[in-house]
Simulated scan of single mutants.
Amino acid sequence: MKKYTLIVFTLLLSVMGAGLLISCGTSKNVVYFQDLKPGESEITLPEVQAITVQPEDKISIIVNSRDPQLMNLFNLPYTTKQIGQQASSNNQGVSGYTVNAEGDIDFPVIGKIHVAGMKREEIAKFIKDKLIADNLVKDPVVTVEFMNLCVSVLGEVNNPGRFSIDRDRLTVLDALSMAGDLTIYGNRYKVLVLRQEGDTQRVYGINLTSGEHLYSSPAYYLQQNDVVYVEPNEVRSRQSTVNGNNVRSTSFWISLASLLTSIGILIFN
Rank of each mutant, 00 (worst) to 15 (best):
S262Y: 08
G180D: 00
I263M: 10
N148E: 13
F33S: 05
K81G: 06
A50M: 00
L20K: 10
M178V: 01
N158L: 01
R238E: 14
P55I: 07
S27H: 01
G117Q: 13
L45Y: 03
L194Y: 09
D134K: 13
I59H: 07
I62C: 03
V235Y: 09
P46D: 07
G19N: 09
S255D: 09
P232H: 01
S89V: 05
K190M: 04
L136D: 09
T98G: 05
S14Q: 05
G93V: 00
D139S: 05
S255T: 10
V247Q: 10
N245C: 10
G96Y: 02
Q85Y: 00
L6I: 06
Y97D: 06
L256S: 04
Q54R: 13
F268S: 08
R202F: 02
L154G: 08
D139A: 02
P68D: 11
K128Q: 12
T26C: 02
D134Y: 09
G264A: 03
G186C: 05
F252T: 09
L13D: 04
L214T: 02
T98V: 15
L173S: 01
M147Y: 01
L256W: 09
N75L: 04
R195P: 02
I83R: 09
F252P: 05
I51L: 07
T79S: 12
G198C: 06
L176H: 00
P108W: 11
V144N: 12
S251C: 08
I110S: 11
I43S: 08
F268N: 05
T80N: 07
N29H: 04
F163Q: 09
V48A: 10
T250S: 14
S240T: 14
D166A: 10
Q224V: 13
A175H: 02
V203W: 06
N64K: 15
S177D: 04
N187K: 04
Y189I: 01
S65C: 12
L182W: 01
K190C: 01
T44D: 11
S88E: 04
F146C: 07
L266W: 12
D199Y: 14
E234S: 12
E40D: 13
S89E: 03
L20F: 12
N148A: 10
L266H: 06
K190V: 04
T80P: 06
T209G: 03
S258V: 15
F163E: 04
D129P: 02
P77T: 00
I7M: 10
K125C: 08
D104G: 12
V235L: 12
P108D: 08
L170C: 03
K37Q: 15
Q223E: 03
K128V: 05
G19Y: 10
R188A: 00
M147I: 11
P160W: 03
V53W: 07
Y97W: 10
S240V: 12
G111E: 13
L192Y: 04
I51M: 03
G103P: 00
I263K: 03
D106S: 15
M1N: 10
T241P: 11
L36M: 15
T209A: 05
L21H: 11
D35W: 13
L266N: 09
V144T: 14
L256Q: 02
M16T: 11
I113D: 14
Q86L: 12
Y185A: 15
S95P: 05
N245Y: 14
L13S: 11
K3I: 01
Y78P: 07
D166F: 02
Y229M: 13
D134L: 13
V230N: 08
Q224F: 06
